[in-house]
C-alpha cells in the first residue's frame, strides 16, 4: 500500500506565532439525529468523548476530540491510523440507525498556531470575536477566502482545519498573518 502523506509535510513558519502543518490526523464525519439514544451511545462509546453542546468540542482521555459541526453533524478527530477502525466500529454500532459515517482524514489539512499571539493571528483573517473564545469552543467559519473550522488545543494554541486542496493557501495566509512585527495588540 502507498504511504499516506499529509498536505504540506509539516511545513512551518515562525513569526509572532508559530504556524505548523500538523501532519496526518484522523477525521471522521458523523451525521445523524442527535436526539436519538442509539446515535448518542455509539458516538460516545467509539470516541470516548462526551457529546458536545452547540459550538463546543469535547476531549477524551486518549486525545480524541468530538466537535459540533451543525445540528446533525459531528466531527471526530483521532489518530490517522485509528480512523478506519473507528469508522467500522461506528457503522456497526449504528446499524440500521439513520446516519452517515465517513473517513475524511485525507480530504483535510490541519494547522496549529501556537504562541501568545495566536488569537491575534486568527482574528486577522476570520470574522470571529476571539476575546471570549475559550478552550472548549469550536467554530466553523471562513479564513479569508476559504471555509475552515478551528478550536483551541490549549490556552495559547489554535488548531485550524481546512480542505486539503486549499492547504497551501491556508499556510501562506496564516504565515502572512503571523509575520514578525505585525501584531495589532488587541489580545
Amino acid at each position: 500500500m502507498s504511504n499516506a502523506v499529509s498536505a504540506l509535510s509539516g511545513a512551518e513558519f515562525q513569526g509572532i506565532a508559530h504556524v505548523k502543518e500538523q501532519g496526518l490526523i484522523g477525521m471522521i464525519t458523523l451525521r445523524g439525529d442527535f436526539a436519538s439514544d442509539a446515535f448518542k451511545a455509539a458516538a460516545e462509546a467509539v470516541s470516548g468523548c462526551a457529546l458536545p453542546e452547540v459550538r463546543k468540542i469535547t476531549v477524551a482521555d486518549n486525545g480524541n476530540r468530538l466537535a459540533w459541526m451543525s445540528p446533525d453533524e459531528m466531527l471526530l478527530v483521532c489518530d490517522h491510523g485509528a480512523a478506519p477502525q473507528a469508522v467500522a466500529d461506528l457503522t456497526e454500532r449504528l446499524g440500521g440507525e439513520h446516519s452517515m459515517v465517513v473517513n475524511v482524514s485525507d480530504a483535510r489539512a490541519v494547522f496549529r498556531i501556537e504562541g501568545e499571539k495566536c488569537r491575534e493571528v486568527v482574528a486577522k483573517v476570520a470574522p470571529v470575536d476571539m476575546a471570549d473564545f475559550g478552550v472548549d469552543d469550536f467554530r466553523r467559519t471562513r479564513f479569508a477566502q476559504v471555509p475552515a473550522a478551528f478550536w483551541m488545543s490549549g490556552a495559547e494554541s489554535v488548531d485550524v482545519v481546512c480542505f486539503r486542496s486549499v492547504a497551501q493557501y491556508m499556510f501562506d495566509l496564516l504565515s502572512v498573518a503571523a509575520q514578525e512585527g505585525s501584531e495589532v495588540g488587541v489580545y
Binding site: V54, W68, S70, P71, P127, R139, R140, T141
Partner: peptide, 12 residues
C-alpha cells in the same frame, strides 16, 4: 438560528 453564531454578511 441553528448554531447561534452572530456573524457578518460574508459568512452567509
Amino acid at each position: 438560528p441553528y448554531c447561534g453564531v452572530k456573524g457578518e454578511e460574508t459568512e452567509f
